[in-house]
Amino acid sequence: MSCVETIQAYALRSIGLGERLLPRSDFTLCDHFVLIGSGLLWNLYFAILALGLGFFLATGIALARNTNVAALRKPAEWFTFVFRGSPLFIQFFLAYEALTLLPRAGIEVNLGLLTITVATSWLTKAWAGALLVLFLNTSAYSGEIFYGALRSVPKGDLEAADAYGFSGWRKFRRITWPTMLRLAWPAYTNEAIFLFHATTLVFFSSFPAWQQKGDALYYASYLADKTFNPFVAYPILAVYFMALTLVIIWIFGRVNRHLNRALPQNTPSRVRPRLFPVR
């Protein structure tokens, strides 16, 4: 099988498109790159959705922790403590064990005139259960980052907003929230990189890969076991992750420059040569 045929057969295999069976022998370098790259689609799925949804929950956690209402502050503090204080792998394990205890037939919800059954079996699949764990974990870490940035918003900015008549939602949207993001963004970039790397733990968690549709580490481990050579598959996996880490740094760097666009930039002035007439 040529490399082009390998790409056509296995490039989208991790999401159910292409060849159903994995190759058994005669593995080429192209097989390694294509199969591991196919599994990387699941790592991107986990990272993008968990980070995107967790951003909003993290903002709510930061606001809840900053309020004087104990009914909001205490749950946010305990949520942050639990998910930051326990290992992510243990969270995967406990979540899977808890979700498997739910009735397979679903949970019946009585609405009076109508009783509906809410399905629960899908929560034990990796695409849902593992995503839920990553979402809650990154929300806790990001919420702590946003909370620290929220506490660091200069009082002068808030006083200036009051002087201009800003209050309530308008003050938060125009002054507090942009300043909080600007202060938190470098640390939040690190959290995004950490979350992307943490998606490899899904392979070690109890959530099963249905019909061998696993993530990048799943295919790297498969190839290393079949070839008895871990020094090909795992370095390729590392190269993929380093390349995508550079993409994350570039995207978040662009956002950071946008957030700081109104601040004076300390850019060195260009050297402009001047001609002086000889006397």
Rank of each mutant, 00 (worst) to 15 (best):
E5S: 09
E5L: 09
I7T: 10
A11R: 04
A11F: 06
I15Q: 08
P23N: 06
R24K: 09
C30Y: 02
W42M: 05
Y45V: 03
A47L: 02
I48A: 12
L49N: 06
A50G: 11
L51K: 03
F55K: 08
F56W: 15
T59W: 14
I61H: 01
A64Y: 10
R65S: 13
N68S: 13
N68R: 13
V69G: 01
A71W: 07
K74V: 14
F79N: 06
V82Q: 01
F83A: 02
F83P: 00
P87S: 12
F89Q: 07
F89C: 00
I90P: 00
A95Q: 06
A98H: 05
L99D: 07
T100Q: 15
L101Q: 13
P103Y: 11
I107C: 10
E108L: 06
V109F: 10
L113A: 12
L113V: 05
V118L: 15
S121Q: 11
L123W: 07
T124S: 11
K125N: 11
G129A: 01
A140R: 03
I145A: 13
S152E: 11
S152T: 09
V153H: 04
V153I: 12
G156V: 04
D157L: 15
E159R: 05
A161Q: 00
D162A: 15
D162H: 11
D162N: 11
G168E: 09
W169Y: 04
P178N: 07
T179A: 13
Y188L: 10
E191Q: 15
E191M: 10
I193N: 02
F203R: 02
F204K: 08
S206Q: 12
P208N: 02
Q212P: 00
G214F: 09
L223M: 11
D225R: 13
N229D: 15
A233P: 09
Y234D: 04
Y240I: 09
Y240E: 11
Y240A: 09
F241D: 10
L244C: 06
V247Y: 02
G253R: 03
L259C: 10
P264I: 10
P268F: 07
V271G: 03
R272Y: 03
P273I: 12
F276H: 13
F276C: 03
